[in-house]
Computed example of a mutant assay.
Amino acid sequence: MTAADRPDWATIPNLVTLVRFALLLPVCLRLADGPDTPGVVLLLVWASTDWIDGLLARALDQASRTGAIIDPIADRLGLAAIVLTLAIADLLPWAALALIVLVDVAMTALATGAALGGRISVSWLGKVRTFVLMTAVFLLVAAAAWTPSLVPAAQALVWIGAGLHTVSGLDYIVRARRAPDAAPAEAGPPSRR
């Protein structure tokens, strides 16, 4: 089957994104009991699927509209569920969780239409924000499991990530509000990140 004959959703990168969705519940359940080595490894596997799906989309020339939609949903839903789990486990301040979720809700309400309509694309700041926030969450879990004395430093990095998340979210909202209804996406073909 050639790429032209394949349905938009039937790609290897989209399968990897679906694996990220499937891993979310096991990751949260494992972390809810307190981070340990299997929890750190499972979180690393979950987070690596975000990098792998984008890499495969580019390497296999399988970027798709479906992937451009479900990849950020997997990121936002996954990150919200994991930070909620860490807040319940008393590793993350509830205020950080509230800030992350509030920004996500605002972006969903105010920028999703422009993103789905191709009028805005993922920004460089958005990519940095995602990397910093996911790295900070991973380091927080790793510190709690292996070196509890480093938990405060990892929590500080989560706050930096939450700050970047806020700035990036505001940027998306402003760009979405300014984007003309018929303007093409800034970056051309669908992006997985």
Rank of each mutant, 00 (worst) to 15 (best):
residue 95 A to D: 10
residue 82 I to C: 09
residue 49 T to D: 14
residue 58 R to A: 13
residue 64 S to V: 01
residue 89 A to G: 03
residue 41 V to P: 04
residue 104 D to A: 06
residue 43 L to W: 04
residue 65 R to H: 12
residue 86 L to I: 08
residue 107 M to T: 12
residue 68 A to P: 11
residue 46 W to L: 15
residue 64 S to M: 01
residue 87 A to F: 09
residue 116 L to R: 13
residue 87 A to G: 10
residue 41 V to K: 02
residue 93 P to N: 09
residue 61 D to V: 13
residue 54 G to W: 09
residue 74 A to D: 08
residue 123 S to I: 08
residue 62 Q to N: 01
residue 57 A to I: 02
residue 39 G to I: 15
residue 117 G to R: 14
residue 120 I to R: 05
residue 111 A to M: 05
residue 99 L to Q: 11
residue 103 V to R: 13
residue 42 L to Y: 04
residue 114 A to L: 11
residue 115 A to L: 03
residue 85 T to N: 11
residue 61 D to L: 05
residue 92 L to K: 00
residue 106 A to V: 12
residue 89 A to M: 07
residue 64 S to E: 00
residue 102 L to C: 13
residue 60 L to M: 13
residue 117 G to P: 10
residue 121 S to R: 07
residue 83 V to Q: 01
residue 49 T to L: 14
residue 69 I to C: 07
residue 115 A to G: 01
residue 118 G to C: 03
residue 104 D to L: 06
residue 56 L to R: 02
residue 103 V to Y: 03
residue 112 T to M: 09
residue 100 I to G: 07
residue 66 T to Q: 12
residue 51 W to D: 00
residue 123 S to G: 11
residue 94 W to V: 12
residue 95 A to H: 07
residue 85 T to G: 11
residue 63 A to C: 13
residue 110 L to K: 05
residue 115 A to Y: 10
residue 122 V to H: 12
residue 58 R to T: 09
residue 90 D to F: 07
residue 81 A to T: 00
residue 56 L to E: 08
residue 115 A to E: 04
residue 54 G to I: 00
residue 77 L to P: 05
